[in-house]
Design a binder for these strands. Structure first.
Lengths: 339, 339
DNA sequence: ACTTGGCACTCTTTACGCCGGAGTGCCAAG
DNA sequence: CTTGGCACTCCGGCGTAAAGAGTGCCAAGT
């Protein structure tokens, strides 16, 4: 619909507004970007863009500001990811190569991303569906509470407390541990449910309830838990956002503290293998209507195992941010594949 | 040094200032608190208090504001912890009793504390020195990388990645795992170093280096790692602080993201068994000079196993906050002792 | 049909001066 | 030692004024 020049105008508006944080007027536009036309022409174009909902003015006779819809068009049609500088690339390498641990990889990644983009970074823990069970450990905590620990061969460790319906003997637990390890040790996580289904039969009647409760928690842990954790960093960068809108920062912080919200944020869309963007209201969470999420799947090889991204004001440098997210996602993928 | 009435005046100033967030003058003081003297007398006292450094005025002919030193005196001599309301007590109980997990206890505690005090809450993971080793698991990740997992009988799980000096055979690892478990299984964490000291001798020469590297990481993990983790919540409450001093919020957020800073914050003082307060500059960290930390040790029984507390503006309700911190610390202690 | 220069209009932002209020410090008297 | 009085200071709010930025529209030009 919008012709060529109008698009150029929109692009210029977005770029200038991102750079200056101030509504941009027709005169400033024609000065800074060498469009071949006069300010009056630009004014006409801007009026048209406003009619179409791509830009808006905060109040009469102020400059124009991109709307969410405007940013969307910009991201979809007008922006290309900006490749990182050499220094940035080197920073990624040196920062990430020292990781000693899965936790460490995630924590370094999230800090790196925050620093690189100067925004809030979010990294989902890799969910390693195709991994298999290395060991199951059962630890009695009290007479009716036991701790269940699952170790996978990819280095993931999950723990979960189980309330048993009644007191359990040490011997039963020991027995259960042996049987569990022999039955599911080495199995793919996905195969575990089938493997343990008839395990309860091997126990005396009075212990079956206990065994069943342990098994149900085990399955729950394997299926759900690995999706639950995210890590974040760079919340201090929100203060820049708060500079102009002090009221918007609190709800964002609140949202970020809710793991659930974060997970939905990353999880709602199908995992993209490359970079995607959720802009403003598209986030479908009250406090996040003034922020954009730039995210990408990452993982070893071709398959995405989790998501990572950054959250910032809708008025952000999309090309740069998208470039950084893509670069980090790829590098982390490489690390996961290599280890 | 300061006589009785001057102390009363200081107390009144602190209370009023905390309540109103505005510098308090002599006239307002004598109106709100039924001191038996006139405003002129108060003025003299205030001048004396100012000479002694307990209060200050933001600018000439404005009301007075307590200094860090003033708050210190208030906390030490004038304040008593305010007991919680019944509703608050019940909130603690219902909130904390549902915990299913050590992680869960910590995460619920920190959220509860944040909500109760309307400030930033910090909870250190319990370090269970007196616990003993339940199981050690060794998982090969690649030819020169193995994952070491330690499970204690208190339900704590630690994992650590080990880079071996060279390739290691599965059999050696299996052997090591067996030997490790038989030697240190059931031992107190503190006893582990002694127990494993001569374990390397049991291996063939070419494997000793590998074994030694694994053992050193193991010891490291047991000694250091359990002190490292903290959890926090309620960062959104910082925005209230930022209302008046927008520039102070960013450094605080930065400090909070640095686990190291947080740990030093809690760790510098000897673990107190009851509530203690660190005010303003006493925190010895740049960005935290405008905040106070109210903290307490907590743990099962008499011995403190970790710390917990809240961070807020120096201008905070100390009696209320201290009461809340004490109550939560005690309740969590009870839970840990009970489970 | 599109572009352009001009112009009037609107609205925000900044500056300035003014005044009121709150609070202090000091003094002299009780 | 306390008290009332008083002069002085300084912040903060308010209204007006001027400046500046930007728009919308129109009529003329290409």
């Amino acid at each position: 619909m919008p012709d060529e020049r109008k698009l150029a105008v929109l692009r210029a508006i977005v770029e200038d507004f991102v750079a200056t944080k101030e509504p941009v007027g027709s005169k400033a536009l024609v000065e800074r970007h060498s469009l071949g036309v006069s300010s009056a022409t630009i004014r006409n174009d801007m009026a048209a863009l406003e009619d179409d909902g791509y830009i808006a003015q905060p109040h009469t006779s102020a400059g124009r500001v991109p709307t969410d819809k405007g940013y969307r068009l910009f991201v979809d049609k007008l922006a290309s990811m900006k490749p990182l500088s050499v220094a940035e690339r080197r920073a990624i390498a040196t920062f990430l190569d020292g990781a000693v641990d899965l936790d460490d990889v995630v924590s370094r990644t999230v800090r790196l991303l925050a620093q690189l983009t100067r925004q809030v970074a979010v990294v989902q823990y890799p969910l390693l569906n195709r991994s298999s069970v290395r060991h199951v450990e059962i630890v009695p905590i009290s007479t009716t509470r036991i701790l269940l620990v699952v170790i996978t061969d990819t280095g993931r460790v999950e723990q979960r407390l189980v309330e048993t319906p009644g007191p359990v003997g040490e011997d039963v637990l020991g027995d259960l541990r042996l049987k569990l390890n022999s039955v599911i040790g080495g199995r793919r996580l996905a195969d575990v449910p089938g493997a343990v289904s008839d395990l309860t039969c091997a126990f005396a009647d009075e212990d079956r309830l206990t065994v069943a409760s342990v098994l149900s928690v085990l399955l729950e842990t394997l299926i759900e838990r690995h999706e639950e954790r995210v890590m974040l960093a760079g919340t201090a960068h929100l203060t820049r956002l708060g500079q102009d809108f002090p009221h918007t920062i609190a709800p964002v912080l609140e949202a970020l503290e809710e793991q659930v919200v974060l997970m939905r944020l990353l999880g709602e869309a199908a995992h993209p293998s490359s970079v995607a963007v959720r802009i403003g209201q598209e986030n479908a969470h009250e406090g996040l209507s003034g922020t954009s999420l730039v995210y990408s799947g990452y993982g070893a090889g071709d398959e995405a195992v989790a998501q990572l991204g950054v959250l910032g004001p809708t008025r952000m440098d999309y090309p740069g941010t998208m470039g950084a997210v893509r670069a980090v996602a790829r590098y982390v993928g490489g690390i996961l594949a290599g280890s």
